[in-house]
Amino acid sequence: MMTSRIGEARIRVPDRIQRGDLITVHSIVSHPMDTGFFRDAEGDPIPAYFIEHVVVTYGGDEVARFDWTSGISRDPVVSFTLRADKEAPLTMVWTDNQGAAFKQSISIGFASV
C-alpha cells in the first residue's frame, strides 16, 4: 500500500561504482496514477491524475526523457542502465498532468580502489 505522500521519490544506484561501469538505476515515485475511468465511493468520477513526463539528467546533461500515460502502474517504478563515466549528480524530475514537479537526486561517486 502507498503510505508516503504524493511525489515522494527514491533513486537507488549500486554502492560501489567504478569509472566506466554500466550501472542499473532504480527509481520510484509515489503517485496514484489515476486513469480517469474509475469512480469514488460516492459515485463521482475520479479525474485522470498521473505522471506525464520524467526527465533524467546526469551532470547537467539530459540522458533520458520518458513520456508516460496513466497506463503506468500506481507508484511508478522505472529502472534503466547508465554508463557511469563521471562523478556527478543524477537527477530525475517527474511532472504530473496537473503541472506538479517532483525532483530527486543522487550523487554518482567512484569507489576508491
Binding site: 554500466l22 546526469y58 533520458a64 517504478v77 529502472s79 534503466f80 542502465t81 554508463r83
Partner: peptide
C-alpha cells in the same frame, strides 16, 4: 549516455 537499453 545510457550505454545499454535495459528498461523495466
Amino acid at each position: 549516455a545510457l550505454g545499454r537499453v535495459s528498461i523495466s
